[in-house]
């Protein structure tokens, strides 16, 4: 705690941090491992449905998923929200979008960001591709963001 700034109220600025070491486990760990190789993989259920990012369990019937398949690094915007003025924790400091992106051939969507475009270029159904972070951390941030595919 830093020193109080308001004597009557005793309001003190305070930072809460939890630098936990998170173990991703075999499925999410494999997904991150492959991201660091600039490869995108998903998990496949018995019906042939593919989940990217790799799901440990089938979101419908909870079946444990362990079969991995590589997918293309391109997908389609399912929904998006444009953030003209990024706020406190946002990773991108210029205007960007959060988006749900369904990678080609998959049956779920991935939450990530879209950058390097203008708001009016974005729409649901737009095709986007992965832009990799140069520095790899084996986390979801190894994808820096997505950008629109020029067609």
């Amino acid at each position: 705690m830093t020193k109080s700034v308001d004597k009557e109220l005793l309001r003190a600025s305070f930072k809460l941090e939890y630098p936990y070491e998170r173990s991703p486990g075999p499925v999410i760990g494999k997904f991150f491992e492959e991201l660091s190789n600039e490869v995108l993989v998903g998990t496949k259920n018995s019906k042939g449905e593919i989940f990217v990012p790799a799901a440990e369990f089938d979101p419908k019937d909870s079946d444990h998923l362990s079969e991995f398949v590589e997918v293309k690094k391109e997908g389609v915007v399912q929904s998006y929200t444009w953030i003209e003025k990024p706020r406190a924790h946002h990773l991108i400091k210029e205007s960007f979008a959060f988006a749900l992106i369904s990678m080609d051939g998959t049956n779920s969507a991935m939450l990530h960001m879209i950058a390097n475009c203008k708001e009016d270029e974005l729409e649901i159904g737009k095709r986007v591709k992965v832009v990799w972070n140069e520095e790899k951390t084996k986390t979801i941030r190894d994808i820096k963001y997505f950008e629109i595919i020029d067609e």
């Binding site: 705690m1 009557e8 109220l9 005793l10 309001r11 003190a12 600025s13 305070f14 930072k15 809460l16 941090e17 939890y18 630098p19 936990y20 070491e21 998170r22 173990s23 991703p24 760990g29 991150f32 406190a88 951390t137 084996k138 986390t139």
Partner: peptide
């Protein structure tokens, strides 16, 4: 490396409570 470090970090303006104040 089989873990990653989460960067949970939140800023607050904490108040002491009327009685404690």
């Amino acid at each position: 490396k089989d873990f990653f470090v989460s960067d949970i970090s939140l800023s607050y303006q904490y108040t002491a409570g009327n009685a404690t104040t």
